[in-house]
């Protein structure tokens, strides 16, 4: 099973081919969760939590009140269209927060997780850039 503390240790000293750095911080609470800053992008931290089945990596993009009110429908359409070709990640909404997230098997190894985190971080930047016309 996915052990969040082992993953944390592995990520912190991770020295993979992509040369990414991970800064891991634990978030107190009943569900084991931690935040990961990829390559110093502290503005867009990625949150990791896991169930028995899967590991969820979530990156908050923006709050719905940051979206121009007249553009919501069009932006949602754009996001659904981008969802399919976007590598490894998908868009979602949690509460009032638009997120980009990736779900992977709890049996994934550290290289796969590092790859997921790197891709998710890149996707979140690309997504905000692509959607910035819809934002206030």
């Amino acid at each position: 099973m996915f052990d969040i503390n082992i993953v944390r240790k592995l990520l912190e000293k991770y020295d993979g081919e992509q040369g990414l750095s991970f800064d891991v911080q634990e978030i107190p609470g009943e569900t084991p969760t931690f935040s990961v800053v990829v390559d110093g992008r502290e503005e867009l931290p990625i949150y990791i939590s896991s169930t028995n089945e899967e590991v969820l990596c979530i990156c908050h993009l923006f709050d719905e009140d940051e979206v121009k009110s007249e553009s919501v429908a069009e932006m949602n359409q754009a996001m659904l269209t981008m969802n399919v070709p976007m590598p490894l990640s998908s868009f979602g909404i949690i509460g009032s927060q638009y997120v980009v997230f990736g779900a992977m098997s709890a049996r994934s190894d550290i290289d796969e997780l590092a790859h997921e985190l790197g891709t998710l971080s890149g996707n979140s930047i690309d997504a905000i850039e692509a959607l910035s016309d819809y934002l206030k």
Binding site: G29, E30, L44, Y47, I58, F62, E66, I128
Partner: peptide
Amino acid sequence: SVQKASQAISSNYASSGSKALSAKESL
């Protein structure tokens, strides 16, 4: 568990001050 995690995340988010930044500012 996503809900619980995101709850923990949003309270952390609010207290860390990163919420103060809009997506555009972050970018």
